Amino acid sequence: METLNYRFEQGRRSLSAEPRIVGVVSSGNLEVLIESTPLDGACEVGIQTAAVGFGPIWQAVISDFQERWQLADTRIAINDMGATPAVVSLRLDQAVEEMLGEAK
């Protein structure tokens, strides 16, 4: 297992809804827990992954996600069992969209 942590400062979009879990931890998939929490405008992403040695790919996927959403005061925990970058992006977008849907 490998643990990766990322922090993005000065986000612009805050989420105000109950925490959400999307996806399942199984072969080729992942689970995303997203929650609103005071982080001085930052977004923190913590990843536990069975696929060791893919830090640069994770960095690219998570950076792209944050560029799209510009999240602030948000913590995301990812439990991964070998999901492809496309699945990671899909689950992250799904988590944010569910939070935004509840806030309406």
Rank of each mutant, 00 (worst) to 15 (best):
Asp64Trp: 01
Val24Glu: 05
Asn5Gln: 13
Ala51Phe: 03
Gln70Met: 01
Ile34Trp: 00
Pro38Val: 01
Asn79Lys: 15
Ser63Val: 10
Ala51Asn: 07
Asn5Asp: 14
Ala42Arg: 13
Gln59Asn: 14
Trp69Gln: 08
Val22Asp: 04
Asp93Cys: 05
Val87Cys: 12
Gln66Arg: 02
Glu31Pro: 04
Trp58His: 13
Ile34Val: 07
Val24Asn: 03
Ser36Phe: 00
Pro85Arg: 06
Ile62Cys: 12
Gly82His: 09
Val45Cys: 11
Leu30Thr: 13
Gly55Thr: 15
Asp73Val: 04
Ser27Ile: 04
Glu2Gly: 05
Phe8Ser: 12
Val87His: 09
Pro85His: 04
Ala42Pro: 14
Asn29Lys: 14
Gly23Phe: 01
Ile21Trp: 00
Ile78Arg: 14
Ser14Tyr: 00
Val32Phe: 00
Val88Cys: 15
Glu2Trp: 02
Pro38Gln: 01
Pro85Gly: 03
Val45Asp: 10
Ala51Asp: 11
Glu44Arg: 11
Glu31Gly: 08
Ala60Lys: 15
Ala50Glu: 07
Gly53Met: 01
Ser89Thr: 14
Ala103Thr: 12
Asp64Leu: 07
Ile47Cys: 07
Trp69Gly: 05
Arg20Leu: 02
Ala77Thr: 14
Leu30His: 11
Asn29Tyr: 04
Trp69Val: 10
Ala60Pro: 10
Met1Lys: 06
Ala83Leu: 12
Val25Thr: 13
Ile57Trp: 01
Asp73Leu: 02
Ser26Asp: 03
Gly53Cys: 02
Met99Trp: 06
Pro56Phe: 01
Thr84His: 13
Glu102Gln: 08
Gln66Cys: 00
Glu9Pro: 06
Leu30Ser: 12
Phe54Trp: 07
Arg68Lys: 11
Arg75Cys: 07
Gly82Met: 01
Gly11Arg: 09
Gly11Glu: 11
Glu31Met: 11
Ser27Pro: 02
Ser16Lys: 08
Cys43Thr: 10
Ile76Arg: 12
Val45Lys: 13
Gly82Phe: 04
Ala50His: 04
Ser26Gln: 06
Gly41Phe: 00
Gly55Glu: 13
Glu98Pro: 02
Leu100His: 06
Arg75Ala: 07
Ile21Leu: 07
Met99Tyr: 06
Glu44Ala: 04
Pro19Asp: 00
Gly46Pro: 10
Glu31Ser: 14
Ser89Arg: 15
Ala42His: 11
Ser63Met: 02
Leu90Gly: 06
Leu30Trp: 10
Ile21Met: 04
Ala83Gln: 15
Ala83Ser: 15
Gly82Thr: 12
Glu9Gln: 09
Phe54Ala: 09
Gln10Ile: 03
Ala77Gly: 12
Asn5Pro: 12
Gly55Lys: 15
Ile78Glu: 10
Ser36Gln: 07
Ser89Tyr: 04
Asp64Ala: 09
Asp80Trp: 07
Ser27Cys: 01
Arg7Ser: 13
Met81Arg: 13
Phe65Met: 08
Trp58Arg: 10
Ser89Gln: 14
Val24Lys: 04
Trp69Cys: 05
Leu30Glu: 11
Ile47Val: 15
Gly46Asn: 15
Phe54Arg: 14
Ile78Tyr: 13
Ala86Trp: 04
Ala60Met: 10
Val45Met: 09
Val96Ile: 08
Ser27Asn: 05
Leu4Asp: 14
Thr37Val: 09
Trp69Thr: 13
Met81Gly: 01
Ala17Leu: 00
Val87Thr: 15
